[in-house]
């Protein structure tokens, strides 16, 4: 049984069906990725998984439990966290306050302090800028903050929505290095990415989403070799 099991998931905005019945599985300890063009329904899928959107149909099981209808603030207490698209940094809060918000679901100051030290170890730049207003960070630093903040919740399953969006190539590799470390610590990842090449290198299994349906799926190696994937996403 996988940590996350999605069956026949549908998401609709009014009459518009953005996700049209998809199945996903994310086994514990794995990194899986979801790739697809703009508007394919990737963000809509993640929002449904994290509880921000209620699915129009379909089932979501996390850790064996049906989680449809459970609000995000309760899911994060069960270890299901998400770093949202566009980073979602609290620009007027300081870096430290953003990280403290990440630990909002956690109790015990010693535990939170040790999470903080782990995040600062992973992203030393954040430690240097802890007193700075987060809105003044560069795009890459904000992305680090978004990841660090998600880790403060000590997730078991972390949903990542395009963590390299708008970053320079050097920052993109830095983010992927960090993700590799996070995965190495045993956190299960479901990664949404436009950068299919890097995503398929990190993940062991991938799904290709097209117009709200899973067009292709398979191990990262098979997908990376697939002519359709090569043409559309690896160009």
């Amino acid at each position: 049984m996988s940590l996350l099991e999605v069956r026949g998931l549908q998401v609709a905005y009014g009459g518009i069906r953005a996700v049209r019945g998809i199945d996903l599985d994310v086994p514990e300890g794995e990194v899986r990725c979801l790739i697809g063009a703009n508007g394919a329904g990737k963000t809509s899928t993640l929002k449904a998984l994290s509880g921000l959107l209620t699915p129009a149909a379909g089932g979501i099981r996390y850790d064996g439990q049906d989680i449809v209808g459970i609000p995000p603030h309760r899911l994060v207490r069960q270890g299901l966290a998400m770093a949202p698209e566009g980073r979602g940094i609290f620009g007027r809060l300081t870096v430290l306050e953003n990280l403290q918000m990440g630990a909002y679901s956690q109790t015990g100051s010693a535990r939170i302090q040790s999470s903080l030290e782990r995040v600062f170890e992973l992203f030393p730049r954040l430690a240097e800028r802890r007193r700075q207003t987060a809105g003044t960070l560069s795009g890459g630093e904000q992305q680090m903050l978004s990841l660090g903040r998600a880790l403060m919740a000590r997730p078991r399953l972390l949903l990542l929505d395009e963590p390299t969006m708008g970053l320079a190539p050097r920052m993109v590799s830095a983010v992927f290095d960090a993700l590799r470390l996070i995965a190495g610590q045993g956190v299960t990842l479901l990664l949404v990415e436009q950068n299919a090449r890097m995503a398929l290198r990190l993940a062991n299994y991938g799904y290709v989403l097209e117009s709200g349906t899973v067009a292709l799926q398979g191990t990262a190696e098979t997908l990376a070799e697939d002519p359709r994937v090569r043409e559309a996403y690896l160009g």
Partner: peptide, 24 residues
């Protein structure tokens, strides 16, 4: 305070605050 921080976070972005575990 923790409550005040959550209030400021909600003022900036309710959805993200919710993802952090805030009961809006």
């Amino acid at each position: 305070t923790r409550l005040g921080r959550a209030m400021r976070a909600c003022a900036e972005n309710i959805q993200v605050a919710e993802l952090m575990g805030v009961n809006v």
